[in-house]
Design a protein around this nucleic acid. Structure first.
Lengths: 191, 191
DNA sequence: CTCATAAAATGACCGCGGTCAATATTTAAT
DNA sequence: ATTAAATATTGACCGCGGTCATTTTATGAG
């Protein structure tokens, strides 16, 4: 397992990530160009690809880190007592993932890692979301059906989350908010 | 609304689609190169983009047409009487969508059309799958929960279908077949 | 048939992600 | 300090999707 050992490596990587974050802050994820990033970081293009397999791998880092951060904040919040509470608690995550169609595309593409060894931040955030849901539905304050394993209930929440977000980007169904669409799903699923 | 009126236009379009199909048959969807397609079709590159907005639009046509075809065949089959029946009936569709990760990516990207005007074959196939599910759960032979609208039940089936397929491409969960994973979801959802 | 106008086809060109052999820098052994 | 092996950086180069001014071809009016 090759770790970046040299101090120089860490420094360069940090420069690249900082530059990338700056570009995203200014123009969004979709507008990010590798050449712009390396130019700002003051390194050559090849260096970028010595640190990230490809452009998407950088996106995995940026988007995944943000998603994990949001989930950590949500996790620190109160235990939801209803399906509506739950959806409301997830709103920051939904807002982020729906902020750009491109972000959602990347999230979907990285939801399953290619290999055990390279589970990236986005795949981790899916796991984190699952664990958070599992924690919620395991709590006595939230009434949940008891005819199926709680693990299955938690997985289902993830499925409906993706479904509701997908429909938001659909021209036919884009008018309803993600939260409003999600609540009936979750209510029906928990019952 | 500009329709291809000239006979020449239809001919060129057909040549492009035929060439594309041939490439896919030989090397798969991911390996398709626009330059290879135009070369085989005997037209210039620019011509391609006069017929398709971009490469993905061609993929939408190819993949969507195939998906719609499969759904038509499934639709002609017998009414499923259990969740397992249902999943089994959907197997051809699952097999196609999971045949290449790239195919699934395109399907997800085109699941929601960008605008009302350009609902492509893939988006249509989602609608078709929804209607098929709705038809199935509306039939008395398939016992279904009656506490929520049938439309919601049908939408949920789509959500779990995507979920199960996503997990198939995930390194952590790739060992279980899509069908085996899907059955418990659907059983729990219909009850 | 002739000519004017619209529609379709062309291919040189560009942007950008990604590669790789060459070069520079760090590390560690003697 | 010297040197060799390992590691990091470089930038010219390539592949391929996509654009657009120009040219070719079809169409319809007189």
């Amino acid at each position: 397992m090759n770790k970046p050992v040299q101090a120089r490596t860490l420094k360069t990587r940090a420069k690249l990530l900082d530059a990338a974050s700056a570009v995203v802050a200014e123009a969004g994820y979709k507008a990010l160009r590798v050449e712009e990033v390396v130019s700002r970081a003051g390194v050559a293009k090849g260096t970028f690809f010595a640190h990230f397999r490809d452009k998407d791998a950088l996106m995995d880092q940026l988007i995944g880190a943000r998603a994990l951060d949001i989930l950590e904040t949500i996790s620190a919040g109160p235990q939801p007592r209803t399906a509506r509470d739950m959806v409301h608690a997830l709103k920051p995550l939904i807002d982020f993932v729906t902020s750009e169609r491109y972000v959602f595309d990347i999230v979907l593409r990285y939801s399953g890692a290619a290999g055990i060894s390279d589970i990236g931040p986005i795949a981790q955030s899916f796991e984190r979301q699952y664990l958070l849901s599992l924690q919620w539905v395991s709590h006595p304050d939230l009434p949940v059906r008891d005819d199926i394993p709680l693990e299955l209930v938690a997985e289902g929440i993830g499925a409906f989350l993706i479904q509701a977000i997908s429909l938001k980007f659909c021209a036919l169904h884009g008018s309803v908010s993600v939260e409003d669409r999600l609540v009936p799903y979750i209510e029906a699923w928990l019952r």
